[in-house]
Simulated assay, not measured.
Amino acid sequence: MSPRPESAAPAADHHRVPRFTRAEHRVHRATAALMAVCVATAACLYLPFLAELVGRRALMVTLHEWSGILLPAPLLLGLVSRALRADLTRLNRFGPHDRTWLRAVLRRRGARPAGKFNAGQKLYAAWLAGAVLVMTGTGLLMWFTHLAPLVWRTGATFVHDWLALSLLIVIGGHVWMAYRDPESRAGLRTGSVEAAWARREHPLWRPEEGADGKRGMEGADGKPGNP
């Protein structure tokens, strides 16, 4: 017997489409691991009860310094991946549909059009990239004391400490949002997502382009561009 139309619909909803490549998954995991070491060692250096519990301050300082210096390394190495370069281009494009998405989030009503990445993800990526650069620069001034006069190092310490606190808050929000969306996490872990989720959360994205970006990407208006 041929399947009934209504019984075929759920199967179509569970069809999976490619979202990320293995290289992107590895870059994300390596960056997350280095960031976790940075945050954990910073906590051991700044919070007295953790400093007393862990001890070995010199080791914590060394781990913190080198994990911070190496933080950009996974992304830089990952640039050999065409898929990663294509997604960085997507993240760097902010169009009218992104402003519509932000207004809908702020007003808590209305449609939320998004390409492969929504406006919130684009803002988070841009902010994180800038924060990492500032943290690296100020950290170098604090590490190599001969690079600048005392007043510069004092300012660098102030900026480094407060930016670290804001990083902790923003990353916590990122982790919380990921926890609330299992399918989004599955996209990074397995490289694919359910077609129904893609249509609902990223309606302007064309999953048939694949994760490698070979068939073009969304333009500034959220529509697919030319190959």
Rank of each mutant, 00 (worst) to 15 (best):
127 W>A: 15
153 R>E: 01
123 L>T: 12
144 F>K: 08
76 L>H: 10
47 L>N: 03
58 A>L: 04
159 V>D: 01
87 D>A: 03
101 W>Y: 12
158 F>A: 15
63 L>I: 03
77 L>N: 05
88 L>W: 10
108 R>G: 04
112 R>A: 03
176 W>D: 08
131 A>R: 07
57 R>K: 12
92 N>Y: 14
123 L>A: 14
39 V>T: 13
142 M>Q: 04
175 V>A: 15
90 R>T: 12
149 P>K: 03
60 M>W: 06
142 M>E: 05
78 G>L: 02
177 M>C: 01
49 F>G: 00
58 A>Q: 08
114 A>N: 05
172 G>V: 04
63 L>Q: 02
53 L>V: 05
37 V>S: 02
38 C>N: 11
80 V>G: 02
77 L>E: 03
182 P>T: 08
123 L>D: 09
173 G>Y: 11
46 Y>W: 13
91 L>D: 13
85 R>C: 12
102 L>R: 01
102 L>S: 08
99 R>S: 15
133 L>W: 14
156 A>L: 08
107 R>D: 15
172 G>L: 07
142 M>F: 05
148 A>N: 11
91 L>E: 15
84 L>T: 03
94 F>Q: 10
62 T>L: 08
37 V>E: 02
69 I>A: 07
57 R>T: 15
159 V>R: 03
163 L>N: 06
133 L>Y: 06
166 S>W: 12
90 R>N: 13
146 H>Q: 10
162 W>A: 08
82 R>F: 02
78 G>N: 04
40 A>T: 07
160 H>P: 06
165 L>R: 11
155 G>E: 10
78 G>T: 05
109 R>L: 07
64 H>F: 08
60 M>A: 06
90 R>L: 15
81 S>V: 01
86 A>P: 05
41 T>L: 00
55 G>H: 08
85 R>P: 08
163 L>R: 06
173 G>E: 10
96 P>V: 01
149 P>I: 04
132 V>R: 00
106 L>N: 00
37 V>R: 00
67 S>Q: 07
163 L>E: 11
148 A>T: 12
50 L>W: 01
137 G>Y: 02
147 L>D: 06
108 R>F: 10
63 L>S: 02
81 S>R: 02
166 S>F: 14
119 A>M: 10
138 T>N: 04
165 L>S: 09
48 P>Y: 02
71 L>M: 13
42 A>M: 12
130 G>S: 11
179 Y>G: 13
122 K>R: 10
167 L>D: 06
181 D>K: 06
95 G>F: 13
54 V>S: 02
62 T>P: 00
128 L>G: 04
37 V>G: 01
135 M>N: 03
165 L>N: 10
166 S>A: 15
135 M>D: 01
151 V>H: 04
135 M>S: 07
131 A>E: 05
134 V>P: 02
49 F>C: 08
122 K>D: 14
75 L>G: 12
138 T>G: 04
127 W>N: 09
97 H>Y: 13
180 R>F: 04
118 N>G: 02
163 L>I: 10
98 D>S: 04
142 M>L: 11
129 A>F: 15
81 S>G: 00
158 F>K: 07
170 V>H: 09
113 P>T: 02
68 G>T: 09
103 R>K: 12
39 V>Q: 05
94 F>E: 09
150 L>S: 05
133 L>T: 11
